[in-house]
Design a protein around this nucleic acid. Structure first.
Length: 321
DNA sequence: TAGGCCATCTGGTCCT
DNA sequence: AGGACCAGATGGCCTA
């Protein structure tokens, strides 16, 4: 993240620059990289960035806002992952198995595990005052990811013009149209028979089932405990929420080093590289974020980052060629 | 073509 | 009650 030149952030900036040099040095020393491309953002979404494709860069090479959140307009959903006109699945009751309940972490347990470390305000268990001071250092230009993904009208069915062929009923309650031949032999596990549906819906709490018919009437039932409008609104909120998460991943993707301009790192890769990168940064800053508090050397951390990037970037295979 | 990745929909659960 | 969060299911796209 771009930071204002506050004392704390200036310190972080300095160490980050040092780390960039260290990592670049480590990358070259590792002699594992015989590619033209050096560290750079792994995102392919910024290929038109004039800075891209040039010298190897580190996200912390913040002569400019290299790590700044880039607010890009949401492209039209050229690939709508779930077209409403696609075959739709049926709702099924949980056939078997225990009911999965979310594990709820007890606040008390958290508190008991928390430690106050005023020396290290970046740790999650840092004191409140220290954490607040860090927040105050946040630049005003930080963009709320949620603001990036204001829903495009074309993204959600909420804004679609109704048409005769358009879906009129909840997706989950519309029977999947039988495929030409395969459906006769392959029956998805989630598809229920009509009798099962009638039984389950009658027992479902709050279900406003109006079904019972075999064809069209089956398609004219509501969601469980929800009206169609509320279901669509919930879908939109969920979409926005996931978009916010994706935007945060993009931000993080830009903030970590990578080797390829064009290869977009997966979310899992981003997390893995970020972890090793943060560990290295912590060691450069004289702290130890390692899980086992083993206090690895900076060289070891650099190697770790390098190897992680190589592994996640799938460069090893290319190198072998 | 299989597998990985991701977006979307959906229902359950928790929180305010 | 409604929104947030989460995980499962599903299908599209891409790559090896």
């Amino acid at each position: 993240m771009a930071t204002e030149p506050t004392p704390d952030s200036a310190y972080a900036k300095l160490t980050a620059s040092e780390l960039s040099a260290l990592i670049l040095k480590g990358a070259s020393m590792s002699s594992l990289i015989d590619r033209d491309a050096g560290f750079c953002s792994g995102s392919s979404e910024i290929e038109d960035d004039p800075d891209h494709g040039q010298a190897p860069r580190s996200p912390t090479d913040s002569s400019e806002d290299s790590v700044e959140v880039r607010v890009t307009p949401i492209p039209l959903p050229s690939k709508n992952k779930r077209k409403s006109s696609e075959p739709l699945r049926c709702v099924s009751e949980p056939e078997l198995g225990p009911i999965k309940k979310r594990i709820r972490y007890e606040e008390k347990l958290k508190e008991s595990e928390m430690k106050s470390d005023p020396k290290n305000p970046f740790r999650p268990w840092a004191s409140v005052a220290a954490a607040a001071s860090v927040i105050e250092c946040a630049p005003p230009s930080v963009v709320d990811p949620a603001e990036i993904f204001k829903r495009h009208p074309a993204v959600t069915t909420l804004h679609r013009l109704p048409s005769c062929d358009d879906q009129e009923e909840p997706l989950a309650l519309i029977a999947k149209k039988p495929a030409k031949e395969k459906s006769e032999t392959f029956i998805p596990r989630r598809i229920k028979t009509e009798t099962e549906e009638s039984n389950s819906t009658s027992s479902a709490s709050g279900s406003t089932s109006g079904g019972g018919g075999r064809s069209s009437q089956t398609q004219q039932r509501n969601y469980k405990n929800m009206t169609r409008e509320r279901r669509i609104e919930a879908n939109a909120r969920e979409r926005t929420r996931v978009h916010t998460i994706s935007a945060a991943f993009d931000t993080l993707r830009h903030a970590i080093p990578s080797y390829s301009n064009t290869q977009k790192l997966s979310k899992l890769s981003v997390l893995r590289i970020a972890c090793s990168y943060i560990l290295t940064l912590s060691r450069v800053a004289g702290m130890d974020y390692s899980q086992d508090s083993s206090e690895p050397s900076i060289d070891e951390c650099v190697d770790l980052v390098t190897k992680t990037i190589q592994t996640e970037g799938k460069l090893r295979k290319k190198k072998d060629e």
